[in-house]
Design a binder for these strands. Structure first.
Length: 171
DNA sequence: ACGATGATGAAC
DNA sequence: TTCATCATCGTA
């Protein structure tokens, strides 16, 4: 049982998508080989109102893809060194995305992109096989009691939005 | 606890 | 054009 997640999966509420991404597989084609890792840690970024989101200040050159179609990658550089991998969610025109922070064996968003050779070259690409980076459902079921909901990492500046439990981690 | 390291967005 | 800031991580 293996299914590539399509646009309809991502074109929903970003919190729902974030929750359901746990247990799914991030697959990267590197030099002809497919590397698949199970997603275990994610964060949701939801709309222009979310002060922790890049979309909070409105549409800019960097965050433009967040305002576009669901199911595309949003990759950006942070702290001058680390590429962050997000998948765009929600309706077109509504800026939202899920940051993929960790997988089985790889803890940390910067380490993940480094390991899978993901850079801003993937920004704006669709999450399909042709792009070399996509997500598969392999039938793993993650029950609620195995999921921990916490506040997001590194967004202490975001006031009340920093307190929202938009981070989902598999125990 | 702190520095690395460079793009971004806003101010000037 | 300058400047503070930043969805982090390795070393100490």
């Amino acid at each position: 049982m293996k299914k590539v997640l399509g646009k309809s999966f991502f074109e929903r509420d970003t919190l729902i998508v974030a929750r359901e991404l746990l247990g799914k597989y991030l697959v990267r084609s590197i030099q002809g080989k497919d590397v698949a890792v199970m997603i275990t840690e994610v964060e949701a970024y939801d709309g222009v109102g979310d002060k922790a989101s890049h979309a909070h200040k409105g549409k800019t050159e960097r965050n433009a893809v967040m305002f576009g179609d669901a199911g595309r990658w949003y990759v950006y550089l942070v702290y001058g060194m680390y590429e962050m991998l997000n998948i765009v969610t929600g309706a077109r025109g509504y800026p939202a995305a899920v940051l993929i922070r960790g997988t089985d064996g790889i803890v940390g968003p910067g380490r993940l992109t480094k390991f899978l050779h993901i850079t801003r070259a993937q920004n704006g690409l669709r999450a399909i096989r042709i792009s070399g980076l996509w997500i598969e459902d392999k039938g793993v079921v993650v029950p609620e009691q195995k999921i921990k909901k916490t506040t997001r990492i590194g967004v202490d500046y975001a006031g009340v939005w920093a307190k929202k439990k938009y981070r989902f981690v598999m125990k």
